[in-house]
Simulated assay, not measured.
Amino acid sequence: MPLATTRRTGLVDQVIEQLRLLVTSGEWPVGSRIPAEPELVDALGVGRNTVREAVRALAHAGLLEVRQGDGTFVRATSELSGAVRRLCSSELRDVLETRRALEVQAARLAALRRTDEELAALADTLRRRDEALTARDWDSMVRVDTDFHAQLVACSHNPVLIEVYAGFTEAVSASVATGVDMDNAAPCVRHVSHDALLNAVRDRDPEQAAREAGGFLDEQLDRLGMSGEA
Rank of each mutant, 00 (worst) to 15 (best):
V55M: 04
Q220I: 11
D183N: 03
V95H: 01
E53D: 12
Q14L: 04
L102A: 11
G62R: 14
V74I: 10
A177R: 13
G228V: 13
G10R: 13
D222T: 05
Q220L: 11
G47C: 07
T50A: 14
A83Q: 13
T178E: 10
L102F: 15
R85K: 06
D70K: 05
Q208E: 08
R127C: 02
L197G: 00
R85N: 07
A210Y: 13
S89A: 14
A57P: 00
G167H: 10
E118S: 03
A54I: 06
R190N: 00
V55C: 01
R56F: 13
D139E: 08
R113M: 05
R129H: 03
A110D: 01
H149Q: 09
A230T: 05
T6D: 02
T77C: 01
G214F: 08
E79K: 12
S193I: 00
R127W: 14
Q208K: 03
W138A: 01
R128E: 09
L11W: 02
L3H: 13
R67N: 01
R108Y: 14
L21C: 02
V104E: 03
E163C: 06
A166T: 12
E163S: 15
A177L: 14
V46C: 12
R128Q: 10
R48P: 00
M226F: 05
G214E: 06
A107S: 10
M226C: 07
W138Q: 01
R136T: 11
A154L: 15
E27K: 08
C188D: 10
R127T: 12
R129K: 06
E131N: 05
G225E: 04
D116H: 13
A61M: 01
E27V: 02
T169G: 07
G167L: 14
R52I: 09
S90N: 07
L198T: 03
